[in-house]
Amino acid sequence: MQILVAPNGRTWNPHSRDFFKYFGFFGKNTDFVSHSVQNLGFSIIETFPSHTRIRFQPALFPTACLHRVIEIILTRPRQRFVLERIGSLFAPLEVFQNRHDAIARLRALQAATPADMASPVAPTIIPLSMDRIGAPKRAGLQTALTAWRRANRHATTRNMAKIAQDPTFGGGGLTWMPGGDRCLVEAWPQTYERHSGISYEKFLGQDIRDLPDADYMIPTTRAYFTAAASREPRLELIEALMTGTDGARFWCRYERLVLPWRTSPSDTFICSVPLVRLLRRV
């Protein structure tokens, strides 16, 4: 199977009539796939019985294309990935036995695209099926989900401080959503000492939209509103550029389980249980 990913993230069947119409007629012997990858910023994903191959041109690999490639390979059944860089005399092949290593390498090579030299502030957020939570590597998320279900998805306001401190539920990161239309910081993650260079205690009770790094916080808390409205948990993969307490920038890829706690017909508390997959210095 072949999937062609356009620079804007749109996917194409490279053998479809719509794809040929998109390009127009080049002649009988034109290799549309190689032409689009080498010259136009496309990438091609091919699935074989033993591996998944990704062909791309690092100097023409826009962020939107990279994000869709990541989204697609997360669903691939094969763990072995072959990356083929084209656009040079020799096309280097790199083989990865782990999809997270392959994603990290794609991210590093994509930095060669001139228009994308500045790292994007907005995070990449990919919804995941809740069926994935049964995997052994997500045992901590499964424990949190089981405890949440055992509590019948309901808590009292008196219990929320205890939930915020419980490592089962992520050890913090609790928000209060009065009326379902606001998202207020109820408790900060216990691993935080400072937030954007300021003591985290200053932000307790503030709306997420008023925090200094709203470009990161607003997209990542959209799932809170969805979970509060549906009263159902959500599982997501997030990749974002972050700043440590020492001021160093790093990429963090993590999964998180979003759990809504109903305290009244109009109020919901949300806790976020993280599972870090990769940390990489910029």
Rank of each mutant, 00 (worst) to 15 (best):
N8R: 02
T11F: 01
S16A: 07
R17S: 10
F19P: 04
K21G: 06
K28P: 07
F32I: 12
F32W: 05
S36D: 13
S36Q: 09
V37C: 12
F42M: 03
R55T: 12
C65G: 00
R68N: 01
I73M: 06
L74H: 09
R78E: 15
R80A: 01
E84R: 14
L89I: 05
A91P: 09
I103M: 12
L106Q: 03
A111L: 11
A111Y: 01
M117D: 02
I126N: 07
M130A: 12
Q142C: 11
L145D: 08
A151M: 14
R153W: 09
M160E: 02
P167R: 01
P167K: 07
G172Y: 11
L174T: 14
W176D: 02
P178C: 13
G179P: 13
G180E: 09
L184C: 00
Y192S: 03
E193I: 11
Y200M: 14
E201A: 14
D210F: 06
D210P: 04
D215W: 06
M217C: 04
I218V: 03
R222E: 12
Y224W: 15
Y224V: 05
A227L: 00
R231H: 00
P233Q: 02
E239C: 06
D246R: 13
G247I: 13
R253W: 06
Y254W: 08
E255L: 15
R256Y: 09
W261N: 04
S266D: 13
D267V: 04
T268H: 05
F269P: 04
R277M: 09
L278G: 07
R281L: 12
R281A: 13
